[in-house]
Amino acid sequence: MPSPVLPAVPTRFALTQLAITRISGQDRGKYLQGQVTCDVNALHPGEQTLGGHCDPKGKLWSNFRLLCLEECLLLLTSPSVLDRQLPELKKFAIFAKVEIATDERHATGIAGTGSDAWIAAQFGLDQSGLIDGGMAVKIEQDRWLLVSNPQADALAQGDESLWWGLDIKAGLPHMAAVHQGEFIPQMLNLQALDGICFTKGCYMGQETVARAKYRGANNRALFLLTGTANEPVSAGDTLEIQLGDNWRRSGMVLNAWQQSGQLWLTAVLPKDTEANAQFRLKQEEHSRLSLHPLPYALTE
């Protein structure tokens, strides 16, 4: 069955589906610390983390990857979330020495057998760290994310959809505008991906996130599914679960990768979903999907 697999050689991916927001100014760390789920204050230049930005009720405006540079913080998100997220992020910035703006750097993926060695030769890194003009982030073995001025032109260019397919296979979530206000951070497995700090103190939506952990108030999680579908699948599409001879709405597609009728996707489903459950897409009755193990353990 076709699946997202690493290229045989280091390959460059232009990541057009990533927006980069720059947070600068004297109070940048302190300000963002009070807005998001991750521990911004714990980051040193060259370090990074996943995280979430919630509304006061604990529902996500976005999930993101946060990079710490010497002179600023960079927030990497889906471009579609910015219309609603940025005004919320800037809402209290007038009271702090902080500036929030679009960054001019580019996001590039490097993936394929030998990419770790290629990065080591180019930048002298074996883990995430600073590079000239930005930062290199190690996503997993032989897969790196570069945020800097354009580089890696010597490498063959790959299809961007493969990069996002590899993220799906890794169980990494990417919210789009259609998901805003739908999920608390634990529904995207951010607690299992070190994207939530439960000891950092107050931030927007913190009470809901803490309640989900300590009182078991969350009953949904991100799952990985594989199967077949002929029609295009999009973020926000409805999944149905088979119950005997009937089908019932079960969850929402987060991200999808398709090739030759094969489909890999992430979706938010009830946490107690049975491992042998069968699914279909609401818009395509003949599609079939089943659960595929996540590459990490789920935690509360």
Rank of each mutant, 00 (worst) to 15 (best):
G124S: 05
D83K: 14
T113H: 15
D132F: 06
I139M: 04
Q127D: 15
T113M: 10
G133I: 01
K91N: 12
T113N: 13
L74N: 02
E104W: 12
A136L: 00
M135R: 11
I94L: 14
F123A: 09
Q85A: 11
A111S: 06
A121S: 10
T77Q: 15
A93M: 02
L82G: 07
K138P: 10
M135N: 07
W118M: 03
A120F: 09
H106N: 11
C72Q: 13
L125C: 04
C72V: 03
T102F: 09
E99N: 13
T108W: 07
E88D: 13
A111V: 00
S115C: 08
C72L: 06
Q127W: 06
K97L: 01
A101H: 14
L76T: 05
I94E: 04
L73V: 03
G114S: 06
V137C: 05
Q141K: 15
T108G: 06
E140G: 14
F95N: 09
L86N: 10
F123M: 06
E140A: 10
E99P: 14
E88W: 15
L74T: 00
K90T: 07
I100M: 06
G129A: 01
L82C: 09
W118I: 00
K90M: 07
R84S: 12
E99M: 13
L75M: 12
Q122V: 01
I110L: 06
A93V: 00
